[in-house]
Each structure stands twice: as C-alpha cells, then as structure tokens.
Design a binder for these strands. Structure first.
Lengths: 337, 337
DNA sequence: TTGAAAGCGCTAACAT
DNA sequence: ATGTTAGCGCTTTCAA
C-alpha cells in the first residue's frame, strides 16, 4: 500500500494540490467549504505529510542532539542522566524537534566528528552537551565548526559557548551556613579532587569561601562521585580519630554512602555528626535518616538549555557568545543535618 | 555562507552533476582522473550531501526509536537503561541509522500516538520497545499500525511482534543448582509479585521449577526491583526467625540491598547465608562481599534487537511474526554464594 | 479565493 | 564513461 500524497488528496477533494497545502498550513484565505472538503479527503486517504519532502523544501533542520560527555562508565551511568534526558526530550518534542542522543568520550574523537558531519549534512541542527568535565578544546572546536551549542552544567571559561548552569557556589555556601547555624564548628567536605569538572571545583570553592567567612574549622577530602567514595571517606574520617561534626558530601550519592557508613559504624546522625548531600535526587528522601541536601533544578535547566539552543538556531540570538545563565538552587533540610 | 550543492561541485570540477553523484555513490564506471577531480572539488568546496534531499529521493527512513516503557519513575531510572541505550545507539549508528529516544507510559497514550504519527510521516522507520511490562494491548496496536517493532526483554504472548529476550528461567535454574551444590537446602526468592512483567514471572517460574526439581525447601517474597526492597526483605526474613540459608534476589539492585541488610545486622555472608542477584550490573563486583549473580548480555541483546529491526525494515524478513530470540545467560559465582 | 509554475538537492533511467 | 531528463513531495512565488 503506497502512501497518499498531496496530489492524491487534491484529486480526491477536487481541488489543486496547492489548496491542500494551504489548508494544512492554515493559510487565512480558504473558504470554509473547501477547507472541510480537503480535511475530509485527508481523513479518507489517511494522508500524512512526508517529513523528508517538507524538510527539503523548507530547508529546516528539526533534529537536536543530546550529547553526554564522560570519561568513566560510572559517570555515564549517573542517575541524573535519565532525569535530564527526559526533560530535554519533552521540551524539544513540544517545540517540534526530534532528539538524538550521543555518547561522547574524550579519547574517541569519532563521536565529535560524527556530530560535525551530521551538522554539515543538515541532519542536525544543534547540540546540548551535558558534562561538567568537557575540555575547553572541544568547546573551541564546536564553536569553530559553528554548530549551535549549549553547554549544560558547565560554563565555557573562554566565553565561546553559551551555557546553563546552577549556582553551586551559592548552594554550598548556604549549606555551610545551615550547618553553622545548627552549631557545627568542624566541617569536612568530600568532593572529587582529581576531577577537573567545574561542578567539583565550584562546590569546593563555595565551601572554602563560606567556611572561611564563618570562621569555622574545615578540611577537604577527595573521592569520586560515587556512594562507595562517600562511604570510604566517612570511614576514613571516623577511624582517623579527629572527627568533624559535619560531613558535607559533594553529591547525594556520596551522601548516601556516608550515611551507610555511619549506620554501619553505629554513629548517630545527626546527633553525633551531621551529613549532607548535593543535587536532591529522588532517593535522598529515602535514605535513613533522610538526607539534607541542595536541590538543583536539573529538569528546569534542561528545558532552558533547549530553549536557548532553539533561540540560537532560529536566529533570535546573534553570535556565539550569550553568557552563562545560572539558575538558583534551594537548600532542602531533612533529618540528617 | 550558503552550502555547496552537487551542481556547485560539478561546475567546479567541470563535469555534470550526475558524475559527482556517481563518484559519491561509488559507481563502477568512473575514470580515475575524473574521480580525483571531483573529489578535489568536493574538498575545495567543503561539500556535504544534503540529508533531507537524499532521504526524499531515496524514500528511505534512517531513524529508529529507542522507546522505554515504564510506569514508575523508579523503573525509568533503572541503570540498565544506560547500558542498553548506548549499545543500541552504537549499533544503529554503525549501520547508518539515527536514534531518537522516547519515554512511554501506559497512562499517557500521546507517546504512542506520536510514534504512530512519526511513522506515518516517514520520519520514523521502526522502534525497539524496552520493557518487561509492556501490555499486550500496546503490542497489538503497534502490530496493527504496521510499525516495524522489536520487543526488548519481553516476548509477545500473542506472537504478533518479534522479540529479543534472555533465558531467565534457565538462569534462575542454574542459580538454584549452584546454591544446592554448595549445600543450601532452604531457599528464599525475593521478586516482585505485583509486577506483571515477564521478567519477574520468568525468574519466579525458573526458581520454583528448579527448587521443586531439587526437592529443597523454598519460599517466595515480594518487593519491588529496588535496593530498598532487597534490604527490607532480608530484614523481614531475618527478624522472622525462620531463616533460609540462601536468599536469591530478583535482580542485583535487590541483591545489593540484601547484602547491606546482612552487614547491618551482622550476618556473615556467605557463612551464615548465601545471597545472589541477577543481571550482573557493574556494581555487583563492588558490593561487600561481591555478589554472585547471573550475567544477562544486555548489550548484545540490544545489538541483536537493532539487527532484527533492520532486517524487518529492510524487508529481509517477511511478515510480523518471526519468533522470540532468546539469548543464553551465564552464572557468575562471586563471594556471596 | 484558488490554480499554475518553479524548484529545494538529490538519484535512477536513459541517451550519448 | 559521461551528460541529459525527469521527478521524489512539498511550499513559495505569482497569475487568474
């Protein structure tokens, strides 16, 4: 069974194919009677416009790419990916765009080259790159290739690419203030140290500045973004003897690990020590005790990233360099601190 | 800057546009000299074929959809999604297809309607539906709409749609045999009971049949696919007094939860009780003790699903009804059992 | 208010 | 071995 075309519909309705097109595109000057006849014909023949023909004629690209950049498998399986991706897809679909997903890694340039090729072939309109660790080299290249790009969760230090981020410095400062207001005077922050990602750096910076401002004792511990790292760090702190009265974790996964370690070691939270996370993932409500954290509006950030990307693609924003847009975060006090 | 077309290249190389097309499509009868000239022109002009024009002319659809069906947010954030999706994308890209991702839910038919519309508009060639809980009603509809579809991790009981699954019955039977061979005689399986998904049903069936065949005491416990459920179930078993000597969990997440409960309760694994999972996710190696489980080749299943889908789309497979393809699973003994 | 003509960029079929 | 012609299905002029 061969699909009906515009001309088939026209013939069926006894009008020219052009009139059918006008009806479809809701042109003003169509008599209601013809309009009805055309719509009936469309229904009769189960007509659906051919997307490829439309795309060719309008030379409009309707596909965006949601690209995840990450080194480690661990990073790629981060639960925030799901959240961000579904918000991204929903927003783009609502605006008539399709989404493809790509997984990029620094050690295989093919993924980036594929993006470039797709863009040149006009099968890709733009890309949102999700990563806190994207090297500036790739940013420069994306800007050079002139691919409409929005960075997610990472600002471009060189200012070539627009970005959507969250106020990690302020969030961490708020968390420190919260701990201090509850009487804590010896804070430890567990956050990746060897991760050049901006979110680690910013969270660390926010912590250091706020702890200094409040004039409380503070220290830093390293460890990856995983629950295991949080657990390990907590054990390390506890077994070391010089115990802090608050353990701030770089994210909720680490926070969950720290809580687990506390439970295992029989340490009462928050009586003996306060624990906090960062991100406010769904499971932060379900830890025991529930995890005090900072809500990061990832879904809203994803929607905004799409809107900014479309703004750039549809030419409403000139040049490459609209600056970083930073969304506020919210302290979420729960049982653990 | 306007993009170069085939005719621009032709003019630049002093040949007809057709010759350029022939060069691009590697037609046999092209003189090496012209070929070189054309390739040089392509490079000079940075020519890239227009994907939309090609798609229109060839009336070939190059987009597949990777659709995740799920009721609960929990299900959607399951880590296996990442694994499956990236394998799916890699395989499809390697074969010249693009992937879009969709999130479907039973209570909102719009997602399915959008698939249908995209298919009719020829912007979608086929779909792989990832879900162990997809209701037969949707299967029937996909078949009726004549959308090339492959089910992932779920067979079609009515036989309309082809599927790629894994041998959950055999895997669970192997696990039971493993426990029995290590001297266990009182087995408890923790698996969702109110989940109509076929993977829960098959894992349960495999367990029951094998336990009966080995003539060992056995029982079932409910609980969702989460770590919390595994933890809860283990506690329940332990506090109940009538303790099994092996706790089999429906998946690794539950297994990790059970191990956590054991640690918290001071129960030695595997000395006092054996614990096993199912799936062999990455973190199963990192639990304490490491988790004995069954490896399910999800990535290979994803690749196979794409190949089957393309087989159907490219007409190499007639009709709707090639049967279920079931991949073997592998027992992975570790420390916990 | 509707119809006719032209062409988006490409490839398949034929002619040379 | 290369060039010419035609048309995929649609929308944007422009004319009637």
């Amino acid at each position: 069974m061969t699909r009906a075309t515009l001309r088939d519909v026209a013939a069926h309705a006894g009008v020219s194919h052009q009139t059918v097109s006008n009806v479809l595109n809701e042109h003003p000057s169509i008599r209601p009677a013809t309009r009805e006849r055309v719509l009936a014909a469309i229904r009769d023949l189960d007509y659906h416009p051919n997307a490829a023909a439309k795309a060719l004629r309008e030379s409009r690209v309707t596909t965006l790419c949601c690209a995840f950049y990450g080194h480690a498998a661990d990073e790629i399986s981060d639960p925030y990916r799901n959240l961000v991706q579904s918000a991204f897809i929903a927003e783009a679909n609502a605006r008539g765009y399709n989404i493809t997903t790509a997984f990029l890694r620094g050690d295989d340039p093919e993924g980036f080259e594929a993006l470039h090729a797709a863009f040149k072939q006009r099968s890709l309109g733009g890309v949102v790159v999700m990563s806190t660790t994207l090297p500036t080299g790739w940013m420069r290249r994306l800007a050079l290739w002139d691919i409409p790009t929005v960075l997610f969760d990472r600002a471009d230090p060189e200012g070539f690419l627009p970005s959507v981020t969250a106020d990690y410095v302020g969030g961490m400062a708020g968390l420190v203030a919260h701990h201090v207001s509850r009487g804590r005077r010896d804070l430890a922050l567990v956050v990746p140290g060897d991760d050049l990602g901006s979110s680690a750096i910013l969270r660390r910076e926010g912590f250091l500045a706020a702890a200094r401002a409040h004039e409380v004792r503070h220290r830093l511990l390293g460890g990856h973004w995983s629950a295991e790292a949080g657990e390990l760090a907590f054990r390390h702190l506890w077994e070391g003897g010089d115990r802090p009265d608050a353990v701030l974790c770089g994210n909720d996964r680490m926070g969950a690990g720290a809580l687990l370690a506390a439970r295992t070691l029989g340490v009462r939270v928050p009586d003996e020590v306060a624990v906090s996370g960062f991100d406010d993932f769904e499971f932060a409500r379900y830890t025991g005790p529930s995890l005090t954290t900072v809500h990061v509006p990832y879904a809203e950030m994803a929607r905004l990233a799409v809107r900014r990307l479309l703004g750039r693609m549809e030419g409403r924003v000139p040049g490459h360099g609209p600056p970083e847009v930073q969304l506020p975060v919210t302290l979420v006090p729960r049982e653990s601190a």
